[in-house]
Amino acid sequence: MSELCVIGGSRYFGRRMVENLRDQGTAVTVINRGSAPAPEGVTHLVADRDDEEALRRAVAGRSFDAVVDQICYTPRQAAIAARVFAGRTARYVMTSTIEVYAGLDGAPFTEGVVDLTPQGPPDESYGGAKRQAEAVLAAQRDFGFASVRSGHVLGGADFTGRLEHYVRRIAEDLPVIVHENPGPSSFIHEPEIARFLAWAALADFTGPVNAASHGELDVRSLCAAIGEARYATGEEVSPYSFERAFTMDTSRATSLGFAFSQVGDWLPGVVEEVRACAAA
């Protein structure tokens, strides 16, 4: 039986991933600050991952076949994890994001276009900090490292409220604020990214890998799945409106053996879920 450690994993697709691994017969240990209970049937350790000594005490005497880090947002957090888990695991998987490609041209992006050489002061942007965290973990030599760059996640208990933003504005006949010529982006269904992360945890590949369902969406096609929308342009654009194409190439994941779904197969159901929640 595999022994896995998950840092975070108390909500959204991280929780579903933990449940998937548990149901597959994997022994799972969840580490979080204790603000939310871990799923039943897993070991729960309480520690603040920003406190290196507390994290070290929590895992003292333990070792794991793999670690999945759901909440690594900064290079400092990555450096702490690299030190604490050196000698405790053979594999480390970080949940990353499409936002590491922010500011780059040439979509659809392949994994290699991001420079993972550690450099410069901490980047305070979400995508930049994630990119620097990847670089820190990629540079260490104590365990194999893989990063999962997820497309925008839709569905499930989405605490971001981004899709609900569109559902509400269209229902209230309010204009959706978009770029003049919004570009497409990559998306993935919440259960699918949970399956992908569970799969990646038990795999043996290293390096970054993009994860997204087949079929890109721009903000107008996303709105069309909800209803008839009115549009306006402005500086405060709505979520998922991008100035240019912001999509990922998923050829690597496919070649490694993961079969992605089609966006069109699950988007209508997700819209109905959000609509029902918004009306409740």
Rank of each mutant, 00 (worst) to 15 (best):
S2E: 13
L4G: 03
I7E: 01
I7C: 08
G8M: 06
R11L: 11
R15I: 10
M17H: 11
M17I: 01
L21T: 08
T29E: 12
T29Q: 01
N32A: 08
A36G: 09
P37T: 06
P37W: 13
A38M: 08
T43L: 15
T43Y: 14
L45D: 00
L45H: 03
V46T: 12
A47F: 01
A47P: 00
D48I: 02
D50K: 11
D51N: 13
E53N: 12
A54N: 05
R57G: 10
A58W: 14
V59R: 05
G61K: 01
R62H: 03
R62P: 05
S63F: 02
V68K: 00
D69H: 03
Q70T: 11
C72D: 12
T74R: 00
I80C: 04
A86C: 10
A90Y: 10
R91A: 00
Y92F: 10
M94D: 15
T95L: 11
S96W: 01
T97A: 12
I98E: 13
V100D: 08
Y101A: 10
G106A: 11
A107D: 12
A107G: 03
G112L: 04
V114C: 09
T117K: 08
P118A: 07
Q119W: 12
G120M: 12
P121C: 11
P122G: 14
A129S: 10
A129D: 00
R131W: 08
Q132I: 02
Q132C: 07
A135I: 13
L137V: 05
A138H: 13
D142A: 14
V148Q: 10
V148P: 11
R149M: 02
R149D: 11
H152D: 15
H152C: 15
G155N: 00
G156W: 12
D158H: 04
T160R: 08
R162K: 02
H165M: 11
R168H: 15
H179C: 10
H179S: 01
E180T: 15
P182L: 05
P182W: 06
G183V: 04
G183A: 06
P184A: 09
S185G: 14
I188D: 07
H189K: 07
E190Q: 10
P191C: 08
A194S: 04
A194T: 04
L197I: 05
A198N: 10
W199S: 07
A201Q: 01
A201F: 04
L202K: 05
L202W: 12
T206W: 15
G207N: 05
N210M: 00
A211M: 03
H214N: 13
E216Y: 09
L217P: 00
L217T: 01
R220H: 04
L222A: 04
L222C: 04
C223N: 01
A224Q: 14
A225Q: 12
G227L: 02
E228D: 14
E228A: 11
R230N: 14
Y231I: 09
E236W: 15
P239A: 09
P239F: 08
E243S: 07
M248R: 04
D249P: 06
D249M: 09
T250G: 06
A253W: 02
S255G: 13
S255E: 05
Q262C: 14
Q262F: 09
G264A: 14
D265W: 02
D265F: 04
P268F: 09
E272K: 07
R275T: 09
A278G: 05
